[in-house]
Design a binder for these strands. Structure first.
Lengths: 209, 209
DNA sequence: GTTGTTACTGACTGGTTAGTCATAATGGCA
DNA sequence: TGCCATTATGACTAACCAGTCAGTAACAAC
């Protein structure tokens, strides 16, 4: 909240501004959606004026792009770390990855961000493109490689790795939509960890040799 | 296209209007999204003036609601028919349902409609609510019952039916998002029928006893 | 204190569009 | 032919909000 940056007190905090603005934007986008969030709101929550926001971000869209880069990119990096550090049979790794995704879905703003990208990608194709490059085209090959490893080691039967990778994350997308779209309008909550665990169980039984 | 209704020729066709307007709205919503579609556009494509549209529909939202009722309701009715007509082991029925959903995803506007509901449900909660009532709360129990039947007959092991029903349709949601969000911005096309077939294969192996 | 620079703001503009309303055309019917 | 209910429209308004800009405040350096 208070100034931790290089410059001294008062209201001049150029170093801290961008992350403060992004934090405000993320909260508001998650609460109200992208279109319904006014730049005045973002500015107010970040503690400056609307014109001030434009000193740090070119566009409303630039806020969304920065958030996609920050959040999604971080998640993918973690997933990649988990995958690359792992030795031995891949089945438990699949379960671990799905459990990791479940906690991300439950405890972070990641689901809301994905929902917003989905909702806005027609109006802002560059945001969709960024998500495609940053998340999809990073994540899918990662999971695809995982399936390939399992097939190569004889753990899995010879399924199509590209399709299997999508089948692995498809249910997590449903969880994301469920949480961000249907729970807010009165659908009963989904136990995401249990759901991911059952998914891992069924999926692994389904592809093992 | 031409007048099939009770009144004679000219431009007065009150019987045919609503479906003409809905057809125009569906096309435009699918092409440009809900928010980006102007009521003037809908009116123009339906062949009347904007004010004319308001003689038949209260709201822009009313168009969307009518479309959800029409398309989604019809699909659910067909799925229910397939399920209830089926006798014998449920495994092939699961495969049939998934193949049916795949053709719907490939050949109808259903995916676009779902995407729009997802995108707009925060701004128009009543649309989300309608979808929840018309599709989710009709479809999920249907699939859940299917899983129960399989468990009761000894075909499937004792998985949680509520979770399994969601796991059954989760991958189809991914296919929908893939087609409506990522393919338009350059992602390679997904072979939905093959994807659904592999899903049926893996899923059924995963839950059989 | 004066000057230069950086950070910041209030007030404004321009474009957009859902929804309305007074008015007009249409066609069945007496 | 003229009447009336129904069907239709052009023109308008009221609200909304992203993005701009001329000007102001704060600070650093000397």
């Amino acid at each position: 909240m208070t100034n931790q940056s290089v410059t001294t007190g008062g209201s001049r905090r150029p170093q801290a501004r961008p992350s403060e603005i992004l934090a405000a934007a993320l909260e508001l986008f998650a609460e109200k959606g992208f279109s319904a969030t006014r730049m005045d709101d973002v500015a107010a929550r970040a503690g400056l004026s609307k014109a001030g926001v434009y000193l740090y971000f070119k566009d409303k869209t630039a806020l969304l792009k920065a958030l996609v880069n920050e959040l999604a990119g971080a998640n993918i990096a973690v997933a990649r770390g988990i995958v690359e550090a792992h030795q031995g049979p891949v089945s438990p790794l699949v379960a671990t990855i799905l459990a990791f995704l479940a906690t991300q879905v439950r405890h972070t703003r990641f689901p809301e961000l994905i929902k917003i990208v989905i909702a806005e990608s027609r109006a802002h194709p560059d945001v969709g493109q960024l998500y495609l490059d940053t998340v999809i085209n990073q994540g899918l090959p990662l999971f695809e490689g995982l399936i390939r490893r399992g097939i190569a080691s004889g753990e899995f039967r010879a399924v199509d790795p590209a399709l299997a990778a999508r089948l692995m994350i498809g249910p997590m997308l449903l969880a994301i939509i469920w949480k961000t779209v249907f729970e807010p309008i009165g659908a009963e909550a989904l136990d995401i960890e249990a759901y991911a665990a059952q998914h891992a169980d069924i999926f692994l039984r389904g592809i093992r040799s």
